[in-house]
């Protein structure tokens, strides 16, 4: 092997090892060009506006819902700080995409996700303000909608609850990761757009596929405990 080939292989291996400990799929601050950053903000606006109208209605119906929603948002933020043992042996942080969508519905999750991602960007430096649109679209819109559809679809066809919950959380995480790869591929297409998207998907698969499986398993455990001890709350949220 030539010298420059050795350098290349060693650099890739070192970068791969570093990446294993990368947190969830937040596109970092300033990583997207200005055009794409603005585009994703515009794309998110209608979803956030619908979610906001829905939340306003909830709060008008019963002011108690304001504290409940705020605590649900805080719960989602704290969830992202939790370490879950990944199936590959390393540790990852759950995104809470599936759990949030099943508990609160996709429209509410869009607004709560926006605030959670804003706090994460300012307090934890996960994600960013310029990439907020792209992150909200993948983690608070596409992922939760997918999870919600999968959960209710599987429940309707008579799938066992544990299976539906696992598939919803797994699919939500997977679609979040695919959407982020598409967003990055569109921003940096290189020689071919499809090639760039596949390249991003391939490199992030190392961390994201094990995370999706881990989060799916964790969400099933969470649901079993919730069903056992807090049926009343789940019924109020129309989950059961």
């Amino acid at each position: 092997m030539k010298r420059n080939e050795k350098i290349f292989v060693l650099t890739c291996m070192a970068a791969g090892l570093l990446g294993v400990h990368a947190s969830a799929m937040h596109i970092m601050e300033g990583y997207l060009p200005k055009g794409w950053a603005a585009f994703w903000i515009v794309v998110c606006l209608p979803f956030v506006a619908i979610g906001f109208r829905r939340i306003s209605k909830y709060v008008q119906q019963n002011p108690k819902n304001l504290t409940l929603l705020a605590l649900c948002g805080a719960f989602a933020f704290v969830l992202s700080a939790l370490k879950i043992p990944s199936v590959t042996g390393s540790c990852s942080h759950p995104t809470g995409v599936g759990l949030g969508a099943i508990l609160f519905g996709p429209t509410t999750t869009a607004v709560l996700g926006l605030i959670v991602l804003l706090f994460q960007a300012l307090l934890l430096a996960h994600g960013g303000l310029t990439t907020l649109g792209a992150n909200v679209f993948s983690m608070a819109i596409v992922g939760p909608i997918c999870s919600w559809i999968v959960y209710h679809g599987l429940k309707k066809i008579g799938c066992p609850k544990a299976g539906a919950v696992f598939c919803a959380a797994f699919a939500g995480d997977l679609l979040t990761y695919i959407t982020t790869s598409i967003e990055l591929g569109l921003a940096y297409p290189g020689a071919s757009l499809a090639g760039a998207i596949l390249k991003f998907m391939g490199i992030f698969a190392v961390t994201q596929v094990p995370l999706a499986i881990a989060e799916g398993l964790l969400t099933v455990v969470v649901f079993n405990v919730l069903e056992k001890y807090s049926n009343r709350e789940l019924t109020q949220l129309d989950v059961l």
Partner: peptide, 19 residues
Amino acid sequence: YHSTGTLVAMLFVRAWQKS
């Protein structure tokens, strides 16, 4: 896994009661 799952579920119940 069991402990993390229980922790998340209990956190949700506590959040609800606290609200």
